[in-house]
Simulated scan of single mutants.
Amino acid sequence: MRTPSDLDRSATAADTATIAAANLLSAAARSGIPCAPVRDLIGAGDVAAAYAVQERLTAERITAGATIVGRKIGLTSAAVQRQLGVDQPDFGVLFDDMHYNQSTPVPLSRLLQPKVEAEIAFVLAQDLADGPLDDEQVRNAVDYAVAALEIVDSRIACWDITFGDTVADNASSGLFVLGSQRRALDAFDPVSAQMQMSIDGIGVSSGTGAACLGDPLRALAWLASTTREFGQPLRAGQIVLSGALGPMAAIVAPGTVTADITGLGSVTAAFIQE
């Protein structure tokens, strides 16, 4: 992983735009004040530029002491892909300080514009660095699945994002919470999972595993292939968030979010105002 200083020394005109976009997003994260979209700096659909910004922000986080614990997959819904005019998912990085236990309330002050979505998390028992990365290999690499809540967030004001904006902004990542029931894939079928999510007991989202690229394991296979192409393959022990099983819901006030996923039980996150 290149450091921010390494990136600066090799700066070109394109790198200058990358640095400017990264600085804008980094300042928004530090201040808690959302910024303007970065697409005017790097281009709305320039995938390479967007991931270059994400890589720079990742390097900054690592330099500051954060540890990568996995990846998240985004834009797995066909409807959302159509909305942003893209035909592919994206991915972001999960850091250790993004993980909240169910027993630990999430302070709203930690977030800017939070929304929550229910997902399946896969924890890997094997690297996905070599081989064909076919269905059998990917499935066999999973240690277990667990219910998850991803708290997505955007450093860009009013969620005014294109594909380039969200990729640059670490796939609009925020925090995540994992459930307690672990299931091996021989005891759980991700594609047929049914999901119900509520806020303070009021239903806000529902969906199925099939809503995630047709099969959450297909999303995992896409991620394994894509991260390997980027030279950052998935490793044993890492957590992978599959992508949403249903629509996301905004968190606008303190409250408790609970998602129930058949075969995986429930996962809960309590949001508090400090």
Rank of each mutant, 00 (worst) to 15 (best):
A157H: 08
A157I: 06
W159L: 08
W159R: 02
D160I: 04
D160M: 06
T162G: 11
F163Y: 15
D165N: 14
T166F: 04
V167G: 04
V167W: 07
A168G: 15
A168P: 03
D169H: 06
N170H: 09
A171K: 00
S172F: 09
S173Q: 14
G174W: 10
G174Q: 09
G174D: 06
F176T: 08
F176P: 01
F176W: 05
L178E: 08
G179T: 11
S180M: 13
Q181C: 02
Q181F: 04
R183G: 01
A184I: 09
A184L: 03
A187D: 15
D189G: 00
D189F: 03
D189P: 00
P190N: 13
V191W: 07
V191T: 10
Q194W: 07
M195H: 09
M195R: 12
Q196N: 12
Q196H: 09
M197S: 00
I199V: 15
I199C: 12
G201P: 03
G201T: 14
I202N: 11
I202A: 06
V204I: 14
V204A: 07
S205G: 01
G207D: 07
A210N: 10
A211T: 07
A211N: 14
G214M: 15
D215P: 04
R218F: 02
R218C: 04
R218Q: 12
L220P: 02
A221H: 05
A221F: 00
L223G: 01
L223Y: 02
L223C: 14
S225W: 00
S225D: 08
E229L: 05
F230R: 04
F230C: 00
Q232C: 00
Q232Y: 05
P233I: 10
L234K: 08
L234V: 09
R235H: 13
R235L: 12
R235W: 02
G237A: 03
Q238K: 12
Q238W: 15
I239A: 02
I239C: 04
L241K: 06
L241H: 02
A244I: 09
A244D: 05
L245V: 02
P247L: 08
P247N: 05
P247H: 14
